[in-house]
Design a protein around this nucleic acid. Structure first.
Length: 499
RNA sequence: GGCGCGUUGGUGUAACUGGUUAACACGCCGCCCUCUCAAGGCGGAGAGCACGGGUUCGAGUCCCGUACGCGCUACCA
């Protein structure tokens, strides 16, 4: 396929959410796979609900995910004049007509009810549909306000082949004469604007949410009336909330916003990987059992044919602090943290440490070897990048400015009063070591335990808490070495005061 | 109300053009490892493929109906 051009066209009425991000991702993957162009177009024609802040949010989200676009961002509102011209052209050709019916105000909250209500009454044809042209022109010239509606043909049906949902057909009689231009200021409406913009931008494949599937028939009609080629459509299944209801910013809040995942310490590649598998699976049997796909692999194996028809559930439990979002996403992120080549992970960890004020230049200089080893040690237990500063803090500060968990202190330090004397003793033993490594520290601690007639486990757990303030962590002697000789002794002495 | 789309374990998915006890991942449970917590290894529970008919030697895979869910039906996008 040559000269493929796709677009992501979010409306800035909300932040970039998981559904939108996945739509963007699929467009991006498709473009990258086929060497096509990925275009970003902000559909801001609803001035009431659009805001610049939301535009920024969308841009930020895409930047974080690394979904780079080749053209844009374009703003649909900038093209309003072109849209108007198209409507006028349609009017000229007799494919549209002026509707002089006074505008009826509809408010957002009650539309659904009003639609149902109106449907119960028998539909009547718009009285202006067949108004003679001269009369229409005269009334318009006299300054009477009007909207422009598309004139849906009498008998027949539209059809198009959706790349995901297959052949779609709809009777003309089931399509109402949609408004193209509002009576107020000739403001163009969505169905007209998308079509005109997609024509202007030479879009070849329209990949978007399934919520547009029904409306596509109207758009096909507009393409045809304008005498332009109809692009290929590929509609994506929706992403639903756990109750299988709509995933909405209003109801589900932060959890659907992409920036939440950035701020929570997700690796963009991991989140992308997770998103890709929501409603899509590689066709190639070779990849059937794989879950982890790098960006390049996704590009390689992506295809429209692998997209599902049924909606996917974004699975999370509200109020569960540890599993605050889809557990598979969390698992995947941990998987990336554990298995990514260290040099790819390091920049992300650096950014995290910098943000927490824990970064020191020497981590890239004199202490690089130590730093790399320590990150490698700690990463095993991290689910998010935030954990590097949360759980990892004791490794990166020289003083005692890390948290001593209350319950842990009670359990590991205060359980046995003998520790008050044992810990300083162990501190001395550690300080006296000529070589400070895994073997020598372990031998030292065990010998010390033997000598004092206590179980090694008592000292091991107490030491972990003394050095990190935590009850859980890497193997103790790895911790001891990572903390290093001076800090270890110092922290052991300090811990004695907590007993 | 009308039109459309969908329905495989709790979740995400797999199952060649109908053909062995429906597979994988997350999650859950147990065991091993062990100084803790993870990770890792091993094993287990969990769907008979929304339901009801039909076609067929044989259906998750084809057909019809029903239910449920979702979308659209706006001078919103």
């Amino acid at each position: 396929m040559a000269d493929i051009r796709v677009r992501f066209a979010p409306s800035p009425t909300g932040y970039l959410h998981v559904g939108g991000a996945r739509t963007a991702l699929f467009n991006w993957l498709f473009a990258r796979k086929h060497g096509g162009k990925f275009i970003l177009r902000i559909e801001d024609t609803d001035i009431q609900r659009s805001s610049e802040e939301m535009v920024r949010g969308i841009l930020e989200g895409m930047a974080w995910l690394g979904l780079d676009y080749d053209e844009g961002p374009f703003f649909q509102a900038d093209n309003a004049e072109k849209h108007r011209e198209a409507a006028l052209e349609l009017l000229d050709r007799g494919a549209a007509y002026r509707d002089f019916t006074p505008k009826e105000e509809r408010d957002d909250a009650t539309v659904k009810e009003r639609i149902a209500e109106a449907a119960r009454q028998t539909a009547t044809r718009n009285p202006f549909r067949d108004l003679p042209r001269v009369e229409s022109d005269a009334r318009a010239a006299a300054g009477e306000p009007f909207a422009i509606r598309f004139k849906v043909p009498e008998a027949g049906r539209t059809s198009f082949e959706d790349a995901v949902f297959g052949l779609q057909e709809r009777e003309y009689k089931d399509i109402e004469d949609l408004v193209l231009l509002r009576s107020e200021g000739g403001h163009p409406l969505y169905n007209l604007s998308v079509v005109v913009d997609d024509i202007l931008m030479n879009i070849t494949h329209v990949i978007r949410g399934q919520d547009h599937l029904s409306n596509t028939h109207k758009q096909v009609l507009i393409y045809e009336a304008l005498g332009k080629p109809v692009p290929t459509f590929a509609h994506l299944p929706l992403i639903l909330a756990p109750n299988k209801g709509k995933l909405s910013k209003r109801k589900h809040g932060e959890i659907v916003s992409i920036t939440t995942y950035r701020d929570a310490g997700f690796i963009p590649d991991a989140f992308l990987n997770f998103l890709a598998l929501l409603g899509w699976a590689p066709e190639d049997a070779e990849f059937a059992d794989r879950e982890i796909f790098s960006r390049d692999e996704l590009i390689r194996v992506f295809s429209l044919e692998g997209i599902h028809k049924s909606n996917a559930v974004f699975n999370f439990t509200e109020g569960d602090e540890r599993n605050w979002t889809d557990q598979k996403a969390l698992w995947m992120n941990a998987e990336y943290i554990k298995t990514w080549p260290l040099d790819r992970l390091l920049p992300l960890v650096k950014a995290e440490l910098q943000q927490a004020g824990l970064w020191k230049e020497e981590f890239e200089g004199a202490r690089k070897a130590w730093f790399d080893r320590t990150i490698d040690l700690v990463r095993e237990r991290c689910r998010t990048l935030r954990d590097f500063t949360l759980k990892g803090r004791p490794y990166f500060v020289d003083d005692l400015s890390f948290e001593f968990e209350e319950a842990t202190v009670k359990k590991n330090l205060q359980k046995d009063p003998a520790l008050r004397d044992l810990l300083p003793g162990l501190a001395d033993a550690f300080a006296a070591l000529a070589e400070f490594n895994h073997e020598t520290t372990e031998a030292c601690l065990r010998a010390f335990a033997d000598e004092k007639g206590v179980k090694a486990g008592l000292l091991i757990n107490a030491t972990r808490t003394a050095l990190t303030g935590q009850a859980a962590g890497p193997g103790l002697f790895d911790v001891v070495v990572a903390i290093g000789q001076p800090r270890a002794s110092e922290r052991l002495r300090h811990a004695a005061s907590l007993v």
